[in-house]
Amino acid sequence: MKADGFGKVFLFAVTFFAAAVVVAGIMLIRSPGEMKLVKLDARRVNDLRQLSRMINAHHKDGGVLPASLAELSTAGRPRALLTDPVTGEAYAYQVASPLSYKLCAVFALSDHDEDPSELYGYSVGAPTDWRHDAGPYCYELTVKNRDAE
């Protein structure tokens, strides 16, 4: 009788553990819709990183920040890079000082709990931290002598 009771307790414990593992797995795995949002946010970050490089190059070549992002597109650079991949709205850009500027986008999700090397291909120690909150978010950037990362 004792062995039978132990078997029931053991079976219950194993069943509970298996159910907990399944629930934890479901909670950790992102839905296809959320993965799409993650990829779109990664695209926005990559666009802004490229724009930052282009702004740095413009400053290096001309000694001044561009007055608008449109100046970058007229210099033979890709126009698609200037707009959000979903809304088609232009990314926001504002000159803050002769050496600093803001680049802004609207993000679907916050990525502060994510590893930037997995999402964007850079480590936390990179010169610019491209992590962001959900919603409108601006990066305050400074012209560098080399390309921004």
Rank of each mutant, 00 (worst) to 15 (best):
residue 127 P to T: 11
residue 77 R to P: 00
residue 114 E to P: 04
residue 57 A to H: 07
residue 103 L to F: 03
residue 29 I to E: 11
residue 48 L to A: 01
residue 115 D to R: 14
residue 33 G to C: 13
residue 83 T to L: 02
residue 88 G to I: 05
residue 114 E to A: 13
residue 92 A to D: 00
residue 84 D to Y: 02
residue 129 D to R: 10
residue 104 C to I: 15
residue 87 T to D: 00
residue 130 W to Q: 07
residue 72 L to D: 01
residue 132 H to R: 14
residue 47 D to K: 01
residue 40 L to K: 13
residue 117 S to W: 09
residue 33 G to V: 13
residue 114 E to F: 06
residue 55 I to E: 05
residue 68 S to D: 07
residue 129 D to K: 12
residue 71 E to G: 12
residue 56 N to F: 08
residue 73 S to G: 04
residue 77 R to Q: 00
residue 67 A to V: 14
residue 55 I to T: 11
residue 134 A to Y: 03
residue 92 A to F: 08
residue 106 V to H: 06
residue 96 A to V: 14
residue 63 G to S: 09
residue 134 A to P: 01
residue 50 Q to P: 01
residue 57 A to E: 05
residue 113 D to L: 04
residue 118 E to D: 14
residue 97 S to Y: 12
residue 36 K to R: 13
residue 65 L to T: 10
residue 132 H to F: 07
residue 84 D to C: 11
residue 136 P to N: 13
residue 108 A to H: 03
residue 55 I to G: 07
residue 72 L to R: 12
residue 100 S to R: 06
residue 50 Q to L: 12
residue 111 D to T: 02
residue 43 R to W: 09
residue 60 K to P: 00
residue 75 A to C: 04
residue 130 W to G: 02
residue 117 S to G: 10
residue 80 A to C: 05
residue 106 V to A: 08
residue 111 D to M: 01
residue 55 I to V: 13
residue 104 C to F: 14
residue 99 L to K: 15
residue 114 E to N: 08
residue 100 S to I: 13
residue 93 Y to F: 10
residue 66 P to I: 11
residue 77 R to H: 07
residue 38 V to C: 05
residue 78 P to W: 03
residue 72 L to A: 09
residue 110 S to M: 03
residue 37 L to H: 13
residue 73 S to H: 04
residue 106 V to L: 02
residue 102 K to W: 11
residue 135 G to R: 13
residue 91 Y to M: 13
residue 75 A to F: 12
residue 52 S to T: 13
residue 129 D to Q: 09
residue 85 P to N: 12
residue 102 K to T: 08
residue 76 G to W: 14
residue 98 P to Q: 10
residue 61 D to T: 15
residue 84 D to Q: 08
residue 33 G to A: 14
residue 33 G to E: 15
residue 71 E to L: 13
residue 113 D to V: 03
residue 49 R to V: 07
residue 123 S to E: 08
residue 65 L to I: 15
residue 61 D to P: 01
residue 73 S to F: 02
residue 105 A to T: 00
residue 82 L to P: 01
residue 64 V to H: 08
residue 68 S to H: 13
residue 136 P to D: 12
residue 91 Y to I: 15
residue 54 M to F: 15
residue 82 L to N: 04
residue 66 P to C: 12
residue 125 G to D: 07
residue 46 N to R: 02
residue 111 D to V: 00
residue 34 E to V: 15
residue 73 S to T: 12
residue 39 K to I: 07
residue 51 L to H: 03
residue 96 A to G: 11
residue 76 G to K: 06
residue 101 Y to H: 04
residue 120 Y to H: 06
residue 130 W to A: 03
